[in-house]
């Protein structure tokens, strides 16, 4: 009997440790799959699950909180996904949370992601349902890409026609681009136009000093001065006086300037006439 007890305890220890290892492995794997511990279920309805499978992870704020338990079709355009989630995160998932299907890395498994809502303060209930966001489907993406590619096709066709007519046509723009004579005449026209507008501004100056229009321009100036005076009245009287003196000086100066302008006008009119003659020659 003593001899027997010599080996039975070793045998017992051996068997116990061996079975314990096995049970531990089973327990931890089961825990990974949410078989033990308290859990709760929620469902969400999708148009498409894009390859989601039973057993895929459910994520909330990037943390794995559960797994997909069941995927079933309820009619031709909607799929109900029910998931098992750890009870401890239930308080964080509100009733307006949304489920979406994404993918884990470039080649990874599909992942169901629950994103938090904004307003609701109420936690989701067991067997409750949450809304879903439709993921970006490759087909949809392709549709929109096709639309813009079609548009690009139309645009490039028109661009081809346009550039062809630019190179071969006889329109004004085409000639402008290709023809040196045309370019020269345009640049001449532009320089004439420049001198013309110079003359025009001189005419305007002349009109200002003309006795017929002088009254009109002076009125404008006076209005300006009045406004300035009103502003200055609010300030000290000394400044007001100084301003009046300045105005008097300014008037004198203006009269001088006007006289100078009359002299200039005569010269410039002659110049303008010379320029016109040049243009006619060309």
């Amino acid at each position: 009997m003593e001899k027997q007890s010599g080996y039975t305890w070793k045998l017992g220890m051996f068997v116990t440790i061996g079975l314990l290892l096995f049970i531990m492995a089973i327990y931890f794997i089961g825990k990974q799959k949410n078989l033990f511990g308290s859990t709760f279920n929620i469902t969400s309805q999708f148009k498409t699950v894009s390859g989601l499978e039973v057993g895929n992870n459910v994520r909330f704020s990037g943390i794995n909180i559960g797994t997909v338990e069941e995927i079933r079709l309820i009619n031709d355009s909607s799929v109900v996904v029910s998931m098992v989630i750890k009870d401890e995160v239930r308080e964080f998932i509100k009733t307006d949370a949304r489920a979406s299907i994404g993918s884990d890395g470039l080649m990874g498994d599909k992942v169901l992601t629950i994103s938090p809502g904004m307003k609701s303060q109420k936690s989701v209930e067991n067997n409750g349902a949450i809304a879903s966001i439709d993921g970006v489907e490759m087909a949809d993406l392709m549709k929109s890409v096709k639309k813009s590619v079609d548009n690009i096709g139309v645009i490039s066709d028109e661009l081809a026609i346009f550039s062809h007519s630019m190179n071969n046509g006889n329109g004004a723009l085409a000639r402008l681009v290709r023809d040196d004579k045309m370019a020269n005449s345009v640049s001449n026209t532009l320089s004439n136009l420049e001198s013309g507008t110079k003359g025009f501004s001189e005419n305007m100056e002349a009109a200002k000093s003309n006795f017929l229009f002088r009254g009109y321009f002076k009125k404008k100036e006076k209005e300006k001065e009045k406004k300035q005076e009103e502003l200055k009245e609010k300030k000290e009287e000394q400044q007001e006086k100084a301003a009046k003196e300045k105005e008097a000086k300014a008037k004198e100066e203006k009269e001088k300037q006007e006289k100078a302008k009359e002299e200039k006008e005569k010269q410039e009119k002659q110049k303008a006439e010379d320029a016109k003659k040049d243009a006619e020659k060309k």
Binding site: Q4, Y7, T8, K10, L11, F14, V15
Partner: peptide, 12 residues
Amino acid sequence: KEFLKQCYYIGY
């Protein structure tokens, strides 16, 4: 008894 003895030899 024989079974346990064999278990000891084979297992342990």
